[in-house]
C-alpha cells in the first residue's frame, strides 16, 4: 500500500518533528504527519514518500488552563482518552466526551487522536461541532507564512477559520499541537448547557449530519450567548450564526429552540452523495439542532420559565 515510502521518522520533540518534515519537503516528495494512523492507513495514499510519526511527542494530555475554567488538549490525545476523561465529563455537560464516543469503533478510538480528527478537515469530523460550540482554537507550530518567532514559532487560529474546505486545514505545513478551549462566559446566577447530536446510517458510521449546541442564559432566563455548530452539512463544519443570533437576547424555551433549528438548517450548504441527499441533510440539520437545543433546555433544569 505504501510501496513508495522511504522514510519513517519517529521524533521525540515538536521541534524535531518540524525539522524533519522541513528537510523532507526540501528533498521533495509527498509526506505526512501521522498520529493514530486511522485515516492515513485507510486512505492508503501510495504516493507518500515519508512519514513523521507523532506518537512519541509529549502531546497526549488534557489540562486545565489557568484558574478561569478553560482547557488545553494536546493533539495526540486519543478519542478514547477524551471519551473517558473524568474531568472533561464534568465540563460543558461532557459534550466533548459524547462526541468522541461516537467516532468509529473502540479500536479506532484507541488509536485515533483529536489532532488527526481535526487536521483531516473532514466536514463530518465529530469533534468539530462541540469544539466550535466551545469557541475553541487550534495552536499550530511551525509551517510557512513566516513562522511566528515571537510566540515560539506558534500561532493560534480560531477553529472556525481552521477548516478551509474538505481536507484543507489551515496548517500551511505546520503541525497542530494543541486545542485551546476558553472558559465559557457564564455570568453570576446564569446557567449553561451543551449537547451533541449525531445521525449515521447505522451505529458505527461517519456522520450523515452532526451538530452541537451551547447556550448560556442569565438569571433572567434570557439567552446571553449561543453557539450552534453543524457538521457534514457543508464543505466545512460550520457555525449557524443567524440561528445563534435568533436566540440571543430572548427567553430560551422550546419555541425559540425550534425557530433557531429551522433557521440553522437554512444556513447549511449540504451536498448529495452516496450517504444521503442534500435535502435530507438539510432537514436533519434542523432535527439535530432542535434536539441539541432541547437537550440544553432539559439540562438547564427543564424549561427555565417553569421556576419563574
Amino acid at each position: 500500500m505504501f510501496d513508495r515510502l522511504r522514510a519513517f521518522h519517529r521524533p521525540a520533540t515538536v521541534a524535531a518533528a518540524l525539522r524533519l518534515a522541513t528537510a523532507e519537503r526540501r528533498a521533495g516528495g509527498r509526506g505526512a504527519f501521522v498520529a493514530g494512523g486511522t485515516d492515513l492507513v485507510v486512505q492508503g495514499d501510495g504516493s507518500l514518500r515519508w512519514v513523521v510519526d507523532l506518537s512519541l511527542l509529549p502531546l497526549r494530555y488534557v489540562r486545565r488552563r489557568g484558574a478561569g475554567g478553560g482547557w488545553t488538549i494536546g493533539s495526540t490525545t486519543t478519542m478514547a482518552d477524551l471519551e473517558r476523561s473524568a474531568a472533561l465529563r464534568r465540563f460543558a455537560d461532557g459534550v466533548l466526551c459524547d462526541a468522541a464516543a461516537t467516532a468509529g469503533s473502540p479500536q479506532i478510538r484507541n488509536r485515533g487522536t483529536i489532532g488527526g480528527n481535526l487536521a483531516n478537515a473532514s466536514p463530518a469530523c465529530d469533534l468539530a461541532p462541540p469544539l466550535l460550540a466551545l469557541d475553541a482554537s487550534a495552536v499550530i507550530a511551525g509551517g510557512a507564512a513566516g513562522a511566528r518567532k515571537a510566540a515560539g514559532g506558534r500561532r493560534t487560529v480560531a477553529l472556525e477559520r481552521f477548516f478551509r474546505g474538505p481536507g484543507r486545514p489551515a496548517l500551511n505545513g505546520g503541525l497542530l499541537v494543541e486545542i485551546v478551549i476558553p472558559a465559557p462566559p457564564v455570568p453570576r446566577g446564569g446557567r449553561a448547557a451543551w449537547a451533541f447530536q449525531k445521525l449515521g446510517r447505522l451505529q458505527s458510521d461517519i456522520a450523515v449530519v452532526n451538530a452541537a449546541a451551547g447556550v448560556i442564559v442569565g438569571s433572567d432566563c434570557r439567552c446571553r450567548w449561543a453557539r450552534i455548530a453543524i457538521g457534514a452539512a457543508g464543505p466545512t463544519p460550520l457555525r449557524a450564526r443567524r440561528a445563534e443570533a435568533l436566540l440571543v437576547g430572548r427567553p430560551f424555551d422550546r419555541d425559540a429552540a425550534q425557530a433557531a433549528a429551522a433557521r440553522a438548517a437554512g444556513e447549511t450548504r449540504p451536498v448529495s452523495d452516496v450517504r444521503a441527499t442534500a435535502d435530507y441533510r438539510r432537514e436533519m440539520s434542523r432535527v439535530l439542532v432542535g434536539r441539541a437545543l432541547d437537550e440544553c433546555l432539559e439540562r438547564m433544569g427543564r424549561d427555565p420559565w417553569a421556576s419563574w
Partner: peptide, 23 residues
C-alpha cells in the same frame, strides 16, 4: 450503488453498511 457510468460508488465498508454488533 453504481454511478451513471457503472462505477461502484460505495465499494468499501465505510459506505456499504452492514449491521454490526452495535446495530
Amino acid at each position: 450503488v453504481l454511478d451513471g457510468r457503472g462505477r461502484p460508488a460505495n465499494a468499501n465498508f465505510c459506505d456499504y453498511k452492514i449491521f454490526t454488533a452495535k446495530d
